[in-house]
Each structure stands twice: as C-alpha cells, then as structure tokens.
Design a binder for these strands. Structure first.
Lengths: 184, 184
DNA sequence: ATTTAATACTTGTATAGACAAGTAATGTAT
DNA sequence: ATACATTACTTGTCTATACAAGTATTAAAT
C-alpha cells in the first residue's frame, strides 16, 4: 500500500464489542451475534447528542430498509410506491379511488400520482376514467390483473418480513410506537 | 359534494384516540397531545403483522424526517448528503480523504461521490488533487470556507434537534439501539 | 516483460423525486 | 350571468438516485 494518509483498502471490519446478550447465550452453539452500531457503520467515534445519533440512525436505517425492500418488489415487477398505490386502491375495491385520496394515503406523499398511475395503467393493473359526477376527478379502479398481482405479493410477504426478525415482535411494536410518538 | 364514491374533500382529521399519558398529565394546563398513529396517517384500519406495521412506519417516518431535515440544510445552502460528506472530510482534517473512504462512511452509500464532490468544489468547500503515491486516488481536503460552513451548521444544529424532542433522550436511545439491532 | 486481474474513480442512462407553473372544471359571490 | 377563487389533476424542469459500463492506474502472475 501507499504511504499516503488515504486508506481506502483497509478492510472495513471494525465491529463493535457492543453485544446484546440473551439468556440462552450460554447454550448457544453459534457465536453470539455482534451488532453493528451506527457509530461503527459510519466510522464515527461517538455522538455527542442522543438526538443526533437518532437522526443519523434513522437516515442510515432507511437506506438499509430500502435495500431490503427494493429487490423484493423488483422481482415482482413493481416499485415500492407502485405497490403502495395498488394497495390503497384495493382498500376501496371495487369502488374507485380518486387521485387526492391516493395522495393522502400514500406513504411517500411527494410522489407524483399522475405519473405513478400512468405506469400502473401501462402494466394493466388499473384503469382510469373521468368521474361523471365531477369531471375534474379521475376514478381509478383495480383490474383483475392488478388484483392477482397484489395477491402474488401478499403470498410472498412473509419472506420479506423475515428481514426484520432481528427484532422480536414486542421490540417491533416498541419501535413503531416510538416512531409514532416521534412524529408527534 | 358529489354523490360519487370518491371523497377527496373529506377533511383529513381522523385522529386516533390512542394517547400517551404521562405522570404529570393531571397537572398539565395544555390538553394532552394525541399521537397520529401510522394507521391513521395512511388511513389503514389495522396491520395484521407487527413487522409490516414497522416496515410501513419506518418508510413513513423517513419521509417525515426528510421533511424536517431538508429545509434546515436548504437554508444553509447544502443538501443532507453534501453536509454528510463535509463532515466526513472534517473528521480527518487536515489530512485528505479519498473517495472510497467517503463512500464507506456515508449514511447514504448509493450516492455518487464523484458528483457530490464536484458540487462541493463548485461551492468552494473542498479541493481535489490526484494522490501522488497512488495516482488512481483522489485527495479531498476541506477549505477554510468549508470549515466555516460546517461551523455555521454546528451552531444551528440544536434548532434541528428540537424537532425530535417529542421523544425523551432515553426514548431516543432506545430507538437508536433497536434500529442497530434491527439491521443486525 | 507482458498479460491478466483488481482497484479507484468516471460517465452514461433510465427512472424517480422536488417543486413550481399550468389547465380545466366547479363553486361562490355579487 | 359574470368574474374570481378553489379544486383536482397535469406538465415541465431541474436535480438526485440506481445501476451498469467505461477508463486509468496499479498489483499479481507467469
């Protein structure tokens, strides 16, 4: 290696000694799983502020979540947003849904509903019609094909959730509730 | 309103009755703050699966976090990623850092370091030089201007963290640790 | 010494996100 | 009835992301 202060090739293996123990550890045949704390992940010594650590952890975790979720939906020929929208439309099925309601119920509300629906029409999963009662509005309906696709996703969902099984159900609930509280 | 099944104009006010209580509630002059659960946020009745609720909550919370954070950095003339990179470079200052190390330490590792650094050079916050010892590598260094900008951000950080004060410090630590555990 | 492989960064492209401006339909006020 | 405002969706533009292919330099193998 070079003698420069740069050090790109140093292997990225500095795992923390911080370990979550469980009662059954003594009997475990596998070595205890060490957890990569956010400080190690991004090579930062220590966060002065607990809220700062939380912020960075949320951002970092989001990237991790995306990496778990994106390939899952990609295999199924959907994006995360497209699946989200399909699910919303199914929630009202066989009644139609308008764009505004889709927008309000979306997880990512910055997404452009018009263009998302365009994609879903291309794929044959939904239809769009001008609403007779209010011609500004668009009625979006699920097709048979769209319903089938959603069922196909449902079947494979458990497989996706296993990626989250590092947390117990109770812990998952705790995180969810605290995230609700965080947003206020 | 129209008689169609569409209902875009129904006000979005269906707040949950689910409320976090504290010991001091009895003495509080303000009404207790009701929390918007993820089910209410996205108008979903109930999640069958705790892990599914967690997944949706993580995705939704990420959007919320971005909305808190983006305007903060925008006012300072930076993006979140640009600030992240500047911070990494400062971590080594006055030694240079190469692209690979920046990549490894970034919160969002999908970002294109080349183009991010280009932006930071445009703004005069960093310099880039070919590493003499290994001419494949680039030495990135912070300028005085870059250092000043980071200090300016530091000064205003507490203001950003107040957005997270719906959680106590202890709760923030709990969430952080559980997120570490989630990623495994 | 020359080929082959690996490393470190660059560039291209297709898609998605952020944000503002635009259009058409409807509601409201006089 | 007409003008003005609001609603609901559309379009444009700029930037960012995801992913793949490309270039230059160095390391390793024979």
């Amino acid at each position: 290696m070079s003698n420069s202060p740069l050090s790109s090739t140093t292997p990225n293996l500095s795992r923390s000694t911080f370990v979550y123990t469980t009662n059954s550890d003594i009997f475990a045949s596998q070595p205890r799983k060490s957890i990569m704390r956010i400080e190690d992940e991004i090579h930062q010594k220590d966060f002065k502020d607990d809220y700062r650590r939380l912020l960075v952890n949320l951002l970092f975790t989001n990237n991790w979540v995306n990496q778990q979720v994106m390939p899952f939906f990609k295999e199924l020929g959907l994006t995360l947003q497209q699946h989200n929208v399909l699910g919303i439309i199914r929630g009202q099925h066989p009644e139609p849904v308008c764009f505004g309601d889709i927008q309000n119920r979306m997880v990512d509300r910055n997404s452009n509903v018009t263009r998302l629906i365009d994609k879903l029409i291309e794929k044959g999963y939904v239809t769009r019609d001008i609403c007779a009662a209010n011609r500004r509005m668009i009625e979006v309906r699920l097709t048979e094909k769209g319903l089938k696709k959603l069922e196909q996703v449902d079947e494979r969902f458990p497989e996706l959730f296993t990626k989250f099984h590092n947390l117990s159900k109770d812990e998952a609930v705790v995180v969810s509730n605290l995230l609700d509280k965080l947003r206020g």
